[in-house]
């Protein structure tokens, strides 16, 4: 077993194990912190797949941005010093059955299909190629994504502001 396989299995176990903690932990703070390890593991898997830029973006956006947002949400909406941190579950049995069926089907299809794999591709760093694509073929999606981020930012600020009417009247 070479080094690549070792690192792959290490990060695979890290990702899947912490995802299990995310879903099955009773305490929502534990879930949030386990989610951080899941994101780290996924970023490491991206590195193993030669996707350096996406891996760094994953770290910046998910661990640096979304996770902090989620922890802020937890802190602002739960009474941290009470027992209320524990979160309940709904219709556990049918959902578990459904999910198990979905998981079995997905894994069966993924492993049974004869994927058209191109062997031994040479990969350079992807940053140059991504930048070139962003200003050529993908220029319209990039602009739309920029507008979307602006709209989302304004919308989030407007929705989260406490007394918007009071603020406006000043």
């Amino acid at each position: 077993m070479d080094l690549y396989a070792f690192f792959f299995y290490f990060f695979a176990v890290l990702t899947v194990g912490s995802a299990f903690v995310v879903v099955f932990s009773r305490n929502i703070i534990y879930s949030a912190f386990a989610l951080m390890f899941t994101f780290f593991g996924v970023a490491a898997l991206y590195v193993l797949l030669y996707a350096d830029f996406v891996a760094v973006t994953q770290l910046l956006v998910y661990v640096g941005g979304i996770l902090v947002l989620i922890i802020f949400g937890v802190m602002l909406t739960t009474k941290v010093f009470s027992v209320e941190m524990k979160t309940g579950t709904l219709n556990l049995l049918p959902a578990t059955l459904f999910t198990a069926i979905i998981a079995g089907m997905l894994i069966f299809v993924f492993s049974a299909t004869d994927w058209n794999v191109v062997p031994d591709q040479e990969w350079d760093t992807t940053v140059y190629g991504i930048g070139a694509l962003l200003v050529n073929e993908f220029i319209l999606p990039m602009q739309v994504a920029g507008v979307l981020l602006l709209v989302a930012m304004i919308g989030a600020v407007m929705m989260a502001a406490r007394d918007w009417t009071k603020l406006k009247s000043k």
């Binding site: 899947v16 995802a19 299990f20 996924v42 999910t99 979905i102 998981a103 997905l106 894994i107 993924f110």
Partner: peptide, 10 residues
């Protein structure tokens, strides 16, 4: 696939 099922379960 495993991550997808866990997310769906959550």
């Amino acid at each position: 696939a495993i991550l997808f099922s866990l997310g769906l379960l959550a």
